[in-house]
Simulated assay, not measured.
Amino acid sequence: MQQAKFCPQCGTPLQEAQFGDRMRPVCPACGYIHYVNPVVAAGTLVEERERVVLIKRGVDPRTNTWGLPAGYVEADETAEEAAIRETREESGLDVALDDLLGVYSFGSAEQMRGVLILYAAHTIGGELHAGDDALDARYFAPNELPPDDQISFWTHRKALHDWRRARAVTYRAATEAEAIAAMEINLKYGQPPRDFLAIVRQDASVLLIATDGQTILGYATLAVDLPGETVRLDNVFVLPASRRWGIGTRLLTSSLDYARRRGVKRLITELDASNPAIVVYLKAGFRICGYLDLSLFQQPTATHPVLFLTYRIGD
């Protein structure tokens, strides 16, 4: 890692001096202290029809390897703006950001350290083609991803491994043993107590689970309110470590499939207005149809209204 030799304020040669918890370059003339901060990069994981966008790098480092659209953040832009710009420049796609996927450190003590901020995104325009500093740009399904030694950086490999693993999650009705396991998860994470065992034993209700092998990553409970009319979605929960990878959205999709199989006209649910998951419901096609301000009923603990959402089957 290249060290600064001269003071950028007065031009005096810098000297090593103890400052804080380490030796730092300090100007003996004006007192300037030179801090070496990590660089910041931003990028996107753009998914469309169960496929992810990768670009083939045309410049060093790692020329001719595949990676996610990403690059360094300029001083006059936000990380979000940089992620959108880099995606457009490298892949030709205009995107909107959906969620923060992760923050990854890279580099070493001998090299410049950096931080990659990665966002989930979806396309809103443009056409996929190799742009600046890229040789190629393609969509890859989970089973089509290049081998690890052809992925540009370990940060990109980690994100793609997580994405591929999330795509392999299965969604189905729970068994009685899995209902008991889900109740334990509910208790562990402080969710409202629910008798999932009773739910799986009834014909007019179901506990849907998202599983990675034998591990339950999330669940949703549904019950038929009015045969032929309404299915109620009581709650959707995903383990904190498994969020941001589309599992909640796919639990909603599975819930809609269940409602269609029951031949009902709509799926309804309710959420606290402060719940950030509302965005997931709206993107899945739910619409807000009303709200209830519980504070009007002299409930002092109610700080936000309850929103009622509905999804009309067939819309």
Rank of each mutant, 00 (worst) to 15 (best):
Q3K: 14
P8L: 06
C10D: 12
T12P: 05
A17R: 15
F19D: 12
G20W: 03
C27K: 01
P28D: 08
A29L: 12
Y35K: 09
V36K: 08
P38D: 06
A41L: 06
E48N: 11
R51E: 11
V59K: 10
D60T: 09
P69Y: 00
P69N: 02
E74L: 12
E77R: 04
T87C: 12
R88H: 12
D94W: 00
A96F: 09
L100I: 12
L100P: 09
S108M: 04
S108Y: 02
G114L: 00
V115I: 14
A120K: 05
A121I: 04
T123P: 10
T123N: 03
I124P: 07
G125P: 05
E127H: 13
E127C: 09
A130V: 10
L135M: 14
L135N: 13
D136A: 13
D136E: 14
D136G: 09
D136W: 04
N143I: 00
D148K: 08
S152D: 07
F153W: 07
F153Q: 06
W154S: 15
T155N: 10
D162N: 14
R164Q: 15
V169F: 03
V169M: 06
Y171R: 08
Y171T: 10
A174R: 02
A174P: 07
Y189S: 13
Y189T: 11
V206L: 05
L208C: 09
D212K: 08
T215R: 14
S242P: 05
R244W: 01
L252T: 06
T253P: 01
S255A: 15
A259Y: 00
R260L: 05
V264G: 03
V264W: 00
V264L: 01
R266V: 03
N275C: 06
I278Q: 13
I288A: 07
C289S: 14
G290W: 02
D293H: 13
D293S: 13
S295F: 12
L296A: 13
F297L: 15
F297E: 15
Q298K: 13
P300R: 04
A302P: 07
P305S: 11
V306S: 13
L307R: 00
L309Y: 03
T310Y: 00
